[in-house]
Amino acid sequence: MTRLALVGRGPDDEAYARIAPRAAGSTIAAVTDGAQAGSDSVASAPTLGDLLESHADAIDAVIVQTPTDERASHIETAATAGKHVLVKGPMGRSAGEARDLAEACAGVDVVFMAGQIDRYRPDVAAVRASMDAGQMGQPGLLRSHRWQPPPTGGPTTWRLDPGRSGGIFIHELTREIDVAAWLFDGPPETVFAVARGQDSDQPDAAVVHLGFPNGGMAVLDVTTALPRGEGYWSLGIIGADGAIYADDQHNMQLLYAGGSPAARLTSTGDATVLSQLQAFVAAVDNGADASDSIAAGVLALEVAEAAMASAASGRAAARTEDGYALV
């Protein structure tokens, strides 16, 4: 049994409460900040510090989903208190912050997983399984799109503030960058990006174009400018021996109610969050070394920063011993 504490509020609060028992019998034991997973039997406190002070013995692991600018301190607090940590989204607002965090946590005997939520999507997992089975051969080109509405207000208003979230490159594109580096089994050697903002100077649409060794390439497109409603996602990868096309368009059902039919996406339910939680709990149970996850989290931030610099300068960036530099 792994007793989990939810720190901060996130879109998957309710899902965690629902699925925790399916992840090797884990349970939500505590929450902060009024997370929706709370119930009368769950310990609650305003902050992580309060929670650790009053209920430290009731918690084995912490799921950090606080605003990006607060994450590093929460991760460090939890890890140094001996709690395993799963962080949703990027580890911090910069690669430097993430590197410092990784160093601070290096000597602590806990499992520390840096999100990588999209790896656990059932469609992405199928892509990876096919690649691992050798069906794709050497990957050549990865193309992904994720279009969604702007973040909502309420407790997640911080997502609207680039100063807190890191903006579209940090807050959003680290997800796609992580998947690309994961599927290509290494860091990109070149980074180019363009970004556009519709209603302000802050970009709400960005394309990151990555070059990998042996001619590999990835084009990652994200926007947060769709009208309110459901988003769109697709990922395709062309390999030397095979190709995979995962696309919401393929998974639409049609609804006829007069006029033009409406499309309804066939949901994958809680599969993504469940899969990630199962992996985390299994790592906790096994005492797994999650340093690869930390390194990947740092890399995603390094690439996102390079993309930001590229978009600002109009130049490409190339990988160096220290990260990336504009060329």
Binding site: L141, R143, F192, V207, G215, V219, G236, D241, A243
Partner: peptide
């Protein structure tokens, strides 16, 4: 196999992924 990011007039962005990828791929 190629990928292109395009910057167009009026701030429009384009991308193109293109290839002769082989019969087995589709």
């Amino acid at each position: 196999l190629a990928s292109v990011t395009l910057e167009l007039e009026n701030g429009i962005v384009g991308t193109l992924c293109i290839g002769r990828i082989g019969r087995a791929k589709h």
